Simulated scan of single mutants.
Amino acid sequence: MRTNVKLFTILGVFLIVVATVYGFWVRWTEWAGIPALYAVAGLSLMTAVFLWLTDRKFGQGPDDDEHGEIAQYAGTYGSFAPWSWWPLGLGVACAGLVLGLALGWWIFLVGVGLGIYFLVGWVFEYSKGDHAH
């Protein structure tokens, strides 16, 4: 896991440098590629932080052991909803956001509203209904 942390950290820093150089190269006038490069850098660094925190919490895993066996991966990996439609709705809302950027602001605003609705529904999925804790 430590190798993955290093890999994603290096990738994130590299993309920040590339985005900054690209921004100066186009004189900060191109508003599609610059934010996209910074977003991918942020996602890489978020992945690195997640893996680092997971490594600190669980320590050495079966994938870090050179002589590890597949059977060592057995066990519970987390708590997942048995059936959830909220991620599908959130995906449709994100598609509406991107479509709105291309076609019109009113579609973008509808996507924002749907995104907020589906995100709140997904976050509070276990707060009410059949699967309430």
Rank of each mutant, 00 (worst) to 15 (best):
M1V: 09
N4D: 13
L7E: 06
F8S: 04
T9F: 13
T9S: 15
T9G: 03
I10N: 09
I10W: 15
L11W: 09
G12Q: 04
V13G: 10
I16E: 00
V18M: 06
V18Y: 11
T20Q: 03
T20E: 00
V21A: 09
V21N: 01
G23M: 02
F24Y: 10
W25L: 08
W25Q: 04
A32M: 13
I34V: 13
Y38S: 01
A39N: 02
A39T: 13
A39M: 14
G42F: 12
L45M: 04
M46E: 05
M46A: 14
T47C: 04
F50E: 08
L51D: 05
T54W: 12
D55H: 11
R56S: 08
R56E: 13
F58A: 07
Q60K: 12
Q60S: 14
G61T: 15
H67C: 01
E69T: 07
Q72S: 09
Y77V: 04
G78N: 05
G78M: 03
S79N: 10
P82N: 08
W83C: 00
W83N: 07
W83G: 00
W83R: 07
S84T: 07
W85C: 03
P87H: 01
P87T: 00
L88D: 01
G89C: 02
G91E: 00
V92T: 03
V92F: 13
A93I: 00
A93E: 02
A95N: 01
G96D: 07
L97S: 04
V98R: 03
L99K: 07
L101F: 14
A102Y: 13
A102C: 10
G104Y: 11
G104I: 04
W105M: 11
W106R: 07
W106Q: 12
I107F: 10
F108Y: 14
G111D: 06
V112N: 03
F118D: 00
L119S: 14
L119K: 00
G121V: 03
V123F: 15
F124H: 09
E125P: 00
Y126M: 09
G129F: 05
G129W: 01
D130E: 14
H133M: 10
